[in-house]
Design a protein around this nucleic acid. Structure first.
Lengths: 340, 340
DNA sequence: TTGAAAGCGTTACCAC
DNA sequence: GTGGTAACGCTTTCAA
């Protein structure tokens, strides 16, 4: 493999000149720049990342801590991962995977060994164990998810409260007076991933303002549980029923149960599921969906951390960013009650 | 951050001794080892990855090239990614994400800059554009998927032929004389991802041997297409119908169409879907599944590349490994024809 | 506008 | 069994 020394010799300049041509941190005459670029081309030179990191104290790598919870709708996790990796490249950074299995020690490891310059944590819980470690780490960290106490942390997430609000408002506008929310799965609720609470706050607030009744019912991947929830909802509903199922893993099940009860979404029952545009296209049945904007959240997370890295931020930055959610009606699946 | 020099001073030994204590490449007396370990502990020393890579010419990082095809069942991609990352850690390596968007230049980049020591490519197509580059790369590469010409390459994949064979055999044993295979989605088929062909070879071979008829029908995420396929299958089927739907994205749709035709899997129609044990648990409806072993394929891919890295393999290695697939019957969902 | 040289923190070879 | 020291390939300061 050619080194910058080789390039320097080939171009008849000093090694430092090669470095400056590449970094642009110093004005270079057109003539020598041409020579150097030609030599680089010629030798297919690529700078050695290790040496560069050693000398510059920057790896241009961001650690991404991914959750592995089978219950957690892996498709949407993958969407985050994928967009994060792509966005990072656009900012001339790479993504190193850190699995949640490694826990807090894993964070200390990648930062301590200076494998990466900063971290993005996905699926941050309300009372995340890793927060103390994160605060003690002397590198920029961006959290996806809002912990109970975000003091001194940089957080970003979809605006779940807005999402809950929008769902109820749209259903109310379609004439429903009772709206049933199928909860996230128990595994998620138990973890106190606090977007659940935020979503519910949104639904309840809107319900209060609009005089609509909101029922909260258990979700999960167990058909019987969903069936039970649906039946309870139907029993308590006057007029045509409406469901909100923000958890991706619940939606199929819900539709199946509804259909077994003789109800067709968009005809005699309104259903709002959640789906990003990407995943929504794969949904075979048109549905009204609430887009929790995973792609936008991902992009912003990367952008923020890259800014922090540029700034070489030492001061304890702190911020909390909520990405607006969007409801999309694909076909007309929200129908007013039959008699209306 | 403390360096090995600091540790050496604290322990009263030479810097090289610290290095040898850590690497174990040289016998160390119990006494000095203790001293060094104490100092490391004391200073919470962690070796600098860049410096280490520079000196040892090994990064202990493996590049993982992930596909981003929304059609491609992101949940299963995520399963690969997750298992690969975990397994890599068990072998003391990290995973760097390389997105498919970067294409062949991306491969050259991460290898050229020596960001990683080797590569794993997912979703390798029959006639993958990246193969020439892969062959020219002077680092170990493991392909997940079998290209048309695997000469000089190290490949691993599930044994799709075996899978096709097993599916047909099990359905034949359950008394079906006509078996309908719902194809992968056109996007996949068009890409000549040749596991499709291999699967079909398996079904057809078994069909020939057992005197069973196999129908191949279009798949996809379009409900009408699936409905059409199902109707065609039903029209051509004598006795009770049987379906094989190896594509994860097709399965829900298939079940929905079947139910709209008044058919219940496990009662009046046999259905074999594909699912790893992890994902199968999330399937709300018990189904007979063919496990294409993504986790096992992932683990082996990592193991292989780590072996190649250890061996510091220069010679053009070559191998092709097929991981056996497994059919699992969850509840009794394969039923012989009613009259049988 | 350019060059020379001193690090950056390891590893690994050569002595002892 | 241990210490000294020369790389490893880059960035950046200091001089010119």
């Amino acid at each position: 493999m050619p080194t910058s020394k080789d390039v320097a010799e080939a171009a008849g300049v000093a090694q430092s000149t090669v470095s400056y041509v590449l970094s642009g941190k110093r004005p270079i005459s057109e003539k020598t720049r041409k020579k150097v670029e030609a030599a680089i081309e010629q030798l297919t030179y690529q700078p050695n990342a290790g040496a560069r990191a050693l000398a510059s104290r920057k790896t241009r790598v961001i650690g991404l801590v991914i959750p592995f919870i089978p219950e957690l709708h892996m498709a949407s996790i993958m969407e985050f991962v994928s967009v994060i990796a792509n966005t990072a490249r656009q900012h001339d950074h790479d993504i190193l995977l850190v699995t949640e299995d490694e826990g807090a020690p894993g964070l200390r490891r990648v930062v301590g060994q200076q494998i990466c310059d900063g971290l993005i944590l996905m699926q941050v819980e309300g009372n995340d164990e890793r927060l103390p470690v994160v605060r003690s780490l002397n590198v920029p960290v961006v959290l996806i998810g809002i912990p109970r106490d975000p003091t001194g942390l940089v957080c970003i997430d979809a605006d779940f409260e807005m999402a809950g609000d929008q769902c109820v408002r749209d259903l109310a506008a379609a004439g429903h007076s009772v709206v049933s929310v199928i909860d996230w799965q128990p595994e998620v609720v138990d973890r106190h991933v606090n977007y659940v609470d935020r979503f519910m706050r949104g639904t309840d607030k809107a319900a209060g303002e609009l005089g609509v009744t909101v029922l909260h019912l258990p979700g999960g991947t167990d058909r019987d549980v969903i069936a039970d929830s649906v039946d309870k909802a139907l029993a308590k509903t006057t007029g045509s029923p409406a469901f909100i199922a923000p958890d991706g893993t619940v939606q199929d099940l819900l539709r199946r149960v509804l259909s077994s009860r003789g109800l067709t979404p968009g005809v005699d029952v309104s259903v709002i599921g959640s789906a990003s545009p990407t995943l929504a296209d794969l949904q075979p049945i048109p549905l009204t969906t609430i887009d929790l904007r995973p792609a936008e959240v991902s992009r912003r997370a990367v952008k923020i951390i890259c800014q922090l890295l540029e700034a070489d931020s030492q001061g304890p930055h702190e911020s909390l960013e909520l990405v607006p959610t969007v409801i999309t009606h694909r076909s007309s699946t929200l129908r007013p009650p039959r008699g209306a």
